[in-house]
Each structure stands twice: as structure tokens, then as C-alpha cells.
């Protein structure tokens, strides 16, 4: 019966934020596609937020697509980064489209917090790129 075992771990053993979360930016015409891979938490979320911020600040970019299908973990800090980015995009009247497919580590936290009613979610990048700017209007 394994009982009372205490693992003591020091911070030195922890990987850096760059290893835990990778973000690639790719221009596709007037769209910027951010491919995100790894784990989004309170430690790494600033990297996601900064990358989305760069895309939103780019005057040549009309649509930002954030592909989260290769994200293995997304927590409250990650959700907050997405909501903050979504609001910033709204203020610029520039859509922020988030690709989640059926990736449960991402879909689950979005659903239990009700944010599927706030964020613009897509199954794949092609679908996110295909929808014209200002759809529904």
C-alpha cells in the first residue's frame, strides 16, 4: 500500500514557458492564423495573450484565427486570455475566431464556464477563414 510518500520537487525541474506553450503566427492574406500547442495556464497564458495582441495590433490583419486544436490543457487563465482578446477584437470590429474542433481539453473548460456563448468557435481553420468578415450583418 503506497502511503505517506512525499515527493519534494524544486522549481528548477520545471520547463520554461516557451517549452510548455508554443505559438506560431502565419499570415494568410488578410488573416493571421495562430497555431497554439501545449498547455495554457497561469504561467504560460501571457504568451498566448501577447501573440493574439500582436495580431490584433497589426493593421494589415483583418481576421485573427486562433487554432487551439493542439492544446492539451486550458485553465481559467487561458480562458481569461481568450475573453480579453475577444473583447479587444470586438472593440476593433475585427473578428477573433477560435478553432477548437472536438478537442476536449479545450472544449470542456469553455463549456463549463458558459463561454461557448461568448467566444466565436469553429471546427477547423478552413471554416474559420471561410466565413466572411462581418458575417451575420
Amino acid at each position: 500500500m503506497p502511503r505517506g510518500r512525499l515527493d519534494v520537487v524544486t522549481g528548477d525541474q520545471a520547463p520554461a514557458a516557451e517549452q510548455l506553450l508554443r505559438v506560431e503566427l502565419r499570415r494568410m492574406g488578410v488573416a493571421m492564423v495562430l497555431t497554439v500547442a501545449g498547455e495554457v495556464d497561469m504561467f504560460t497564458a501571457p504568451r498566448l495573450e501577447a501573440a493574439v495582441g500582436r495580431s490584433l495590433a497589426d493593421a494589415a490583419v483583418d481576421v485573427t484565427v486562433v487554432d487551439l486544436t493542439r492544446v492539451d490543457f486550458l485553465d481559467d487563465a487561458g480562458l481569461s486570455a481568450l475573453v480579453t482578446a475577444h473583447r479587444a477584437a470586438e472593440r476593433q470590429d475585427e473578428p477573433l475566431r477560435i478553432v477548437v474542433d472536438h478537442n476536449r481539453p479545450v472544449v470542456r473548460p469553455i463549456q463549463i464556464t458558459g463561454l461557448e456563448r461568448v467566444l466565436a468557435l469553429y471546427y477547423d481553420v478552413a471554416e474559420a477563414l471561410g466565413e466572411p468578415h462581418g458575417s451575420g450583418g
Binding site: 524544486t10 522549481g11 520547463p15
Partner: peptide
């Protein structure tokens, strides 16, 4: 048991 730092989460 871990230090209360951000790296601990992962």
C-alpha cells in the same frame, strides 16, 4: 510539496 510559484502548475 512544491514551491508556491507559477512553474509549479505544470
Amino acid at each position: 510539496r512544491l514551491p508556491a510559484v507559477l512553474e509549479t502548475l505544470g
